[in-house]
Structure formats: structure tokens, C-alpha cells
Computed example of a mutant assay.
Amino acid sequence: MKRINLIAGLLFLTGTTSFAQQTVTQPMSQLIDEQFNFAAEQYKVLDQRIPAGLTPQSYDAKKDKLIAYDIKWWCSGFYSGSLWYIYEQTKNKEIRKTAEKALKVIEPNKTFTGNHDLGFMMFCSFGNAYRLTGDPAYKEVINSSAASLATRYRPEIESIQSWDKSKYWKCPVIIDNMMNLEMLDWVSDHGGDARYKEIAIKHANTTLKNHFRPDFSSYHVVDYDLTTGKVYRKATWQGAANCSAWSRGQAWALYGFTAMYRSTKDQKYLDQAMGIAHFILNHPNLPADKVPFWDFDAPKIPYAKRDASAAAITASALLELAQYSKGKEKTEFVSSAETMLRSLATPAYRAKLGENGGFLLLHSTGALPLDSEIDVPLIYADYYYLEALSRYKKWYL
């Protein structure tokens, strides 16, 4: 019955029949190969539109305009990271050349200390490049990036400061920051400074203590007072309300604590990840196709905007979390991730070749309260979609 309801919902969303139904029922091996072959062609379209020295972020369909930013933008590593995932699956040499070119653009970020996002910027990019090539030059870039990220650690609060002090915040730490700990762990585990992993653990423990509610949902921002070391307030910047569960924030939390468990094997991180997963999957406002609304407490549900990026991140995290699970729980995590990936592969969420500015996915939401990036493609949605597809192929086929 659930499979029938999912198909019906997707057909309603797309207004099509054959392709939507095919993506729901075809073997995952075939679906995954088709998505990577599509991505290889679609990203050729995207590459042709990127201005020199910038990195792609989104696309304005009304103006037929690519949105691209300076390399210091927090998303600058996702394009090259996506290309490396595509190359890994297709062995397309032109894609590899494009990936290498994209790395050269962002390499100066290895000494950037202006925010906490060095993991996103440099590990999603150079991390994948090193994983696939073993080039020691890439490892050196990752090591330098970890050193830069470590400068933002604040011992007064045992956390990495996310954004700089402003009229809005004293010392903000956002749940997204959990995603940047993986690079610190990796460098320490691969011959680098052991202090980086200590920082990652302290940050994760502080987040565990201060960011979560009893139901395992997360606040977006915890603002600290560096003078006292105490929490100043708990709030949101991109969610519907201070007390709401911003969907992508929950995905960041799930992914981050799963990665911390992988690195440390500390049971409390696994327990936290399990709790977050069940919060997401059992939430009454999670749609049948499992692509979340932009906030689990968003106004106007079921007419609220979706966030394909939250689904892609969640799917990728669930597939790894299932590696540390057993029985019905493992089955639930893999099945839920598969539903998300099948949904994202339909015309309801995936672009047609040559359209969407060259991006893969439609219908992501960046920061609705700021009237920014609403119902648009986003480069990190593509990245985690490709990562999740790759993980499914590696672990479950």
C-alpha cells in the first residue's frame, strides 16, 4: 500500500506517468547508473555557464541566470566534489579534468579562517579528490584547511565558532557545524595533529549538550557568551521559528553524529544519530515521498515549500547509519533512503537534460525566512544526492 501511495503522489506532483512510475519501480542499480550518466551530461551544461574564478550555487529560471559566488562562499567545494563523484562512477576523463580545474579555483581557501565551513569547502572537494587519486598534494591542502578551521575553536565554550560576532550574535554555533568535524577527524587519523580530533570531540559533546530538545530535534543556532562560557540564547536563522525543527538542520545533525560515531566509535554519538533518524522518519509532517517540507513545523503544510537538499543529505546519512544498525532498524533506514532517492530521481525533483541551469535537482530551499533561495536548485543538494547514490551502490547492491 505504501508503494502504491508513493507512486500516486509522484504522479500527482509531476503530471506524468511512465517515467515517474519507472523510477519508483526500476532496479536501483539501473536507476543509479542512469542518474550518474545524466549528471555527467548535465554538468557539462553547468560548466559552460560558470564565470571564471567563481563557483556555482543556484539558478534563476525567470532570468535564465546562473548564480555563482566567490570562492569564500561556504558552498564553494560542492561543485568539484560532485564532479569527483560523477567521475568515480562514469570514469569520464573530461569530467575528471573539469574536477581538477575546479579544485585549482578553490585551493586558496586552505588558509581561509573567516568561517567554520572549511569542511564543506575543502573536504567535500579535496577529500574526494585524494580518496580517488591518492595525490599527496591534495592531502597537504586538506591538512592546511584543518589547521585553518582549528583557529576558530573557542576553548571558553569548547566549540568552533561558526559566524563572527555581529549585531545579531555574540558567538554563534550552528548545527551545520557538525558537518565540518569530519575533516578534523580525518586529518588526525591520517598522520596529522591529534589536537584536531580533540577539538572535534569537544565540539560534538558541547553540541550534544546544548543543541537538542528531548525529542532529538535540534535548534539551529546556539549563541554563547564568551566571557562566561554560558549559553546566551537558542534561536534560528533559517528555520520557521526558534522552537521549530528546520529540516536541513535536522539532516546536518543526523549526518554529523553518524560521522562522529564512525570516527570515534563512541556509543553516545550513535545513540544520538539513531534518535535524530527516528525523529525525522516518524514525524507526522514527513510527506509520503519522504522529501521534507523546508521546516517540519513550517506554516501552511501541506502547501509549504519542499527542500530536496534536506532529503539528499538525510538519505546519505541514513545509508551510513544503517551500516551501524541491525534488523528492522537497518531495513527501515535503507528503505527510507531508497524512497528519498527514488523520489528525487523523478521529474518531480530532477531536472531535464539541458534545463535548470545545468543543476541536477529542483525544489530546494535555502533560507526562506530571509527570502533567499526559495524553490530553486542548490549545488549542495546535487552533491549529497550523488553521494547518497554512490553510497547505495557501494553498500547495498
Rank of each mutant, 00 (worst) to 15 (best):
L6P: 02
T16C: 07
Q22S: 11
T25G: 00
Q26K: 14
Q26F: 02
P27E: 09
S29T: 13
L31M: 11
Q35F: 01
F36P: 03
A39D: 03
K44L: 08
I50M: 00
S58V: 00
D60F: 00
D70M: 07
K72V: 10
Y79V: 12
W84R: 03
K91V: 06
N92I: 02
N92T: 05
T98R: 13
L103G: 13
E107S: 08
T111G: 01
G114M: 10
G119Y: 14
M122I: 05
M122S: 11
C124T: 15
G127M: 07
A129S: 11
T133M: 04
T133P: 04
Y138Q: 05
K139G: 06
V141Y: 11
S144Q: 14
A147N: 12
A150I: 06
E158D: 12
S162E: 04
K167M: 06
Y168H: 10
P172I: 06
M179T: 11
D185S: 14
W186F: 09
G191A: 14
Y196Q: 05
E198K: 11
N205K: 15
K209D: 14
D215A: 08
S218K: 09
V222G: 08
D223L: 10
Y224F: 11
T228S: 15
K230E: 14
N242D: 15
R248E: 14
G249E: 10
A251N: 06
G256S: 15
A259S: 15
M260C: 14
D271Y: 05
A277F: 03
H278D: 15
I280N: 09
L281Q: 02
N282D: 15
H283R: 03
P287T: 02
D289N: 08
W294K: 02
P299V: 09
A304M: 07
D307I: 01
A312N: 09
A312F: 12
A315K: 06
S316Q: 08
L318G: 05
Y324P: 00
F333H: 01
S336M: 02
A337L: 00
R342N: 03
L344V: 10
T346N: 05
A348W: 10
Y349H: 14
G358Q: 04
F359S: 15
T365V: 11
A367T: 12
E373I: 01
I379V: 14
L389G: 02
L389V: 02
S390E: 10
Y392H: 05
K393A: 13
W395G: 01
W395M: 12
